[in-house]
Simulated assay, not measured.
Amino acid sequence: MADKTQLQKWGSKVIDIEKAALDNLYQYVNSDEFEDACKLILQCSGKVIVMGMGKSGHIGNKIAATLASTGTPAVFVHPGEASHGDLGVLSKNDIVIAISNSGESSEILTLIPVIKRMGIPFISITGVPTSTMATHAKIHLCIQVPEEACPLGLAPTSSTTATLVMGDALAVALLQARGFTKDDFALSHPGGMLGRKLLLKVSDIMHKGVQLPLVYEDTLITEALYEVSRKGLGMAAIIDNDNKLLGVFTDGDLRRIIDAEVNLSTTKISQVMTPNCITTHEDVLAAEALKVMEQKNINGLIVVDEAQCPVGALNMLDMVKSGVI
């Protein structure tokens, strides 16, 4: 059995070989063909159909998913299934991206006449510029690698890595060319953590109405503590008679006044509150509010309107429950 040193040596060699393959990829990205492929896809009024067999199919599936989530409508179609009916997904406004390291995938070659007869532009991604797929394509993107990381030269390794990176290069170039924004990205990721961070606003998670801890400036500390306890946010907003925010009183303030031996039954909350406290607005992204809390090392925020009247409050636990953290 191989020892630790030998296993690490083999693993490191794979990384070295695949790094060399990616260095070799620069010449193909910095080519007229890459530019032409991007422009063709940008002009497409339909969707991008990605195809590939075997390991190329797995990579193609990921490329299609990345394109779709970054502003380029795309789906993966299995070439084997395509010749048995799934090719019906194709429309005249679509573009096909076919992937095969050898460029001789029989399942894809069978489909080329049909794709051409439909007048659909065909982009090939192969490691052999003289292959059948490359020569029949409108645009060929080369992903030729110096060598596979597999010592037998059989298992696709460097070539699949190069293909994946070429797909990412296409997707990101297209994203930037389209002016795709964080808001656009969030709309296609509403269910995951990314979507929650990009879509959730303070108004979606803040406590408001009767849940909002509020006390007037002349309230005694003992009475204010009842409000803090009842609302369970570890703080209370201090307001004047016009409902304008004057400050905040938190659990941290309570610890400080206890250390200072302040009389809780006779002292007004306005005398011990934190004035000019940090606030946020309800239309702010929850992720941005979280960033403020982390930077200022505070556990909660009062939400105010344009008139500086409290309309809500939230704390770190709300961030956790909503999935922003």
Score class of each variant (00 low, 15 high):
residue 67 L to N: 00
residue 281 H to M: 14
residue 27 Q to A: 15
residue 293 M to R: 01
residue 287 A to T: 15
residue 265 S to D: 14
residue 86 D to Y: 04
residue 208 K to I: 10
residue 5 T to C: 01
residue 13 K to R: 12
residue 208 K to S: 14
residue 119 G to M: 05
residue 150 C to I: 12
residue 191 G to E: 07
residue 219 T to I: 11
residue 235 M to G: 01
residue 100 S to P: 05
residue 227 E to R: 09
residue 295 Q to T: 15
residue 187 L to E: 14
residue 138 K to P: 03
residue 132 T to Y: 02
residue 46 G to N: 03
residue 84 H to R: 13
residue 132 T to P: 02
residue 261 E to Y: 09
residue 119 G to I: 05
residue 97 I to W: 09
residue 159 S to K: 08
residue 33 E to C: 14
residue 156 P to W: 07
residue 231 K to V: 05
residue 168 D to H: 05
residue 113 P to T: 06
residue 206 M to D: 05
residue 51 M to F: 11
residue 64 A to I: 07
residue 1 M to D: 10
residue 124 S to Q: 13
residue 299 N to V: 00
residue 132 T to K: 13
residue 263 N to P: 06
residue 125 I to N: 04
residue 180 F to P: 04
residue 231 K to F: 07
residue 159 S to V: 03
residue 119 G to K: 08
residue 294 E to N: 15
residue 251 D to P: 02
residue 55 K to T: 06
residue 127 G to Q: 03
residue 281 H to K: 15
residue 137 A to R: 13
residue 103 G to P: 02
residue 171 A to E: 10
residue 209 G to I: 12
residue 313 A to Q: 03
residue 121 P to F: 12
residue 54 G to P: 09
residue 65 A to I: 04
residue 186 A to V: 11
residue 185 F to D: 00
residue 271 Q to F: 09
residue 40 L to C: 14
residue 79 P to I: 02
residue 212 L to I: 05
residue 304 V to W: 02
residue 23 D to G: 12
residue 205 I to Q: 09
residue 51 M to G: 09
residue 134 A to P: 05
residue 220 L to N: 00
residue 145 V to Q: 11
residue 282 E to S: 14
residue 210 V to K: 14
residue 107 E to Q: 08
residue 198 L to R: 10
residue 158 S to D: 11
residue 156 P to L: 06
residue 69 S to Y: 09
residue 12 S to F: 10
residue 210 V to P: 03
residue 70 T to A: 02
residue 39 K to P: 05
residue 194 L to G: 01
residue 46 G to I: 09
residue 47 K to T: 05
residue 74 A to F: 04
residue 103 G to N: 07
residue 147 E to D: 13
residue 128 V to G: 00
residue 85 G to C: 08
residue 220 L to I: 06
residue 3 D to S: 06
residue 19 K to F: 10
residue 192 G to I: 10
residue 203 S to Y: 01
residue 36 D to G: 12
residue 61 N to D: 04
residue 79 P to V: 12
residue 161 T to A: 03
residue 118 M to N: 13
residue 249 F to D: 03
residue 238 I to Y: 07
residue 153 G to F: 07
residue 135 T to E: 13
residue 166 M to C: 01
residue 230 R to A: 12
residue 142 C to S: 15
residue 150 C to F: 10
residue 32 D to Q: 10
residue 153 G to R: 09
residue 58 H to Y: 12
residue 235 M to E: 08
residue 293 M to G: 07
residue 288 E to M: 00
residue 32 D to W: 00
residue 268 K to D: 05
residue 303 V to Y: 03
